[in-house]
Design a protein around this nucleic acid. Structure first.
Lengths: 242, 242
DNA sequence: GATTTTCTTGTTGTGCACAACATCACGACT
DNA sequence: AGTCGTGATGTTGTGCACAACAAGAAAATC
């Protein structure tokens, strides 16, 4: 749902400015958040309000609105007289976020699980096939995109709206830092291949669990994978700095 | 920490406007959030940006910044051409938030618990005595304030910063709706007295657990009380509409 | 030569005027 | 009498000019 204009960097992609204020706001917000998550704006990058204003064809004012929201969610930090900077997260704090995500992942299967209908099952199957294509032709950006779509699909399995909202925010936070950290490791290509394979297995496992209809199990599988994913990243990072 | 100027409605209370932009922002933000939680601005209330601007001695622009953040956190909703309205929450969604809070309460005792030092223990003792004073002289607003301080103290028992942040937001959301719903019930005075007594017991139990040093138990007690508190509210509300 | 000071440049923050929008009252028309 | 339209009013949204601020360069001073 959040990723419309897929090229994501093509200014022409914006389909006319005759939408309501709220729609424009949502559009700019989702676009920027996706860019941050996909590392189009990596941690440390400085965003200029005026540039963004020009790109989206508005003045600085509505842009600032979006930036304030992104700052409230921890993606940005505006400093008077300096700039608006994409936040970075140390490994210690990242671990805290992961700890929390692990618990929330299980809650998605326990709090108000929704029976997946046929369209959802179809979406899972399609995701699995995209995943299989990825195994044959590894690509970091495509991996990130599938991972993101997969998350949103999983997240829609709980009827607990606050839980969805919070999980989403934490997902974006951890994923971008995960991507950034992984991409700086020396044996990046190799690690990426492994991760894609593991991710493929996770998707396959979860699709099975969804088909059986046991969302509790989905939560447990997901929990295990999130936890292990962070462990692997931490181990690799430790090994690299020695 | 969030509640400075206690009168909370006295415009003169703001101690000079020579602070930095960020400090001003935080001040206005915390002030408004506290007012929302204490029902100075009840759900449905319409806030006028110009009034707030005048009260805090600034223009509409910095006010809007605060309002955007409060909207992102679900306390407000701005509608073009209509106004900025304090959100209300239906009992169904409130239940979802409570479900989540119940789980998070337990996590506070499990994720990175911090050993309470002497100053924290003292703070707990002081809170307990304030609580005892309240039993003798029931007062809804003072009850809300103590409850809020108690929450912040408990919340400081985990080192997991994202968890703290999220728990805080959900606390403010549920507490204000709880207060609103309770205050509309017919036997409000009686219910309030009961709640104060029960809350007093909860504080006493938790102070004991803190002194023993078992934060896991703190989480469990807290979990139980949050859950029961909502159950009581729901039962009372159901009884009232019959 | 080193250090302090001042100036220049670039950025976000603020204030204000106006546009866009929703709502309601009032009146014209059927 | 009812219904639609039209305008008045009040609100948030936008654009723009300028203030406040930070950082680095340049210059003045010792």
């Amino acid at each position: 749902m959040p990723d419309e204009d897929l090229p994501a960097f093509d200014p022409k992609a914006r389909t006319g400015g005759d939408r309501s204020a709220r729609q424009r706001f949502e559009h700019i917000y989702h676009t920027l958040r996706t860019r941050i998550c996909l590392l189009d704006y990596p941690p440390g990058e400085r965003l200029r309000e005026e540039d963004l204003a020009e790109e989206f064809g508005v003045s600085r004012t509505p842009i600032r609105r979006v930036l304030v929201k992104l700052e409230a969610e921890g993606f940005l930090r505006s400093v008077h007289g300096v700039g608006t900077i994409v936040t970075d997260i140390e490994i210690e704090e990242l671990e805290q976020v992961y700890q929390l995500r692990v618990e929330l992942a299980e809650l998605i299967g326990r709090l108000m699980p929704v029976e997946p209908d046929n369209s959802k099952r179809a979406a899972f199957r399609e995701l699995l096939s995209r995943c299989e294509g990825l195994v044959g032709k590894p690509d970091a950006r495509e991996f990130a995109r599938i991972n993101m779509d997969f998350f949103h699909l999983l997240n829609s399995l709980t009827g607990n709206e606050p839980l969805r909202e919070i999980s989403e925010r934490l997902y974006y936070q951890t994923t971008r830092i995960w991507l950034k950290t992984a991409s700086r490791l020396s044996q990046y290509e190799e690690i990426l291949m492994d991760e894609i394979r593991i991710f493929h297995r996770e998707v396959a496992d979860i699709v099975d669990a969804v088909n059986v209809g046991d969302l509790r199990v989905v939560g447990l599988i997901r929990r295990a994978h999130i936890s292990m994913s962070f462990q692997r990243l931490r181990n690799e990072a430790r090994r690299a700095y020695r």
